[in-house]
């Protein structure tokens, strides 16, 4: 069971129409690979974030499938074109079924 999971997102508060902006996201998560064993030799079950998506006003920007080799606290930095005022919605999907969400508004002016 993942504990202390907290998403963090950085999106500029405003942009000009059609501008390409940089988005940074990070989620604190231990990303247990499923390959390790504990001190008694038992396998530690896999517990990772397996998918990350970003949508802007309902339109998908990025959709990432994540694998066990990805390290603790996965960080994504990507660019997006902003056509209009709206909201970026970020979603992380955990192996245990949890879904973590965050959203950031951006104003085009």
């Amino acid at each position: 069971m993942a504990s202390g999971v907290k998403p963090r997102v950085k999106v500029p508060a405003s942009a000009s129409a059609g501008e390409v902006i940089t988005i940074k996201t990070l989620i604190s998560h231990q990303m247990e690979s499923g390959q390790r064993k504990d001190s008694d030799g038992n396998k530690i079950p896999r517990s990772i974030i397996n998918r990350f998506t970003c949508d802007f006003n309902g339109e998908n920007v990025i959709d990432v499938t994540m694998e066990p080799a990805i390290s603790t606290n996965p960080y994504f930095e990507f660019q997006a074109t902003v056509p209009e005022t709206g909201e970026f919605k970020f979603t992380w999907y955990d192996d245990d079924g949890s879904v973590y969400e965050d959203s950031k508004p951006i104003t085009v002016g």
Partner: peptide
Amino acid sequence: DFDNPAFLAVDAAQI
């Protein structure tokens, strides 16, 4: 603060 790795610990302490 986004780049400063100390803020992972700060977030944990907030919890």
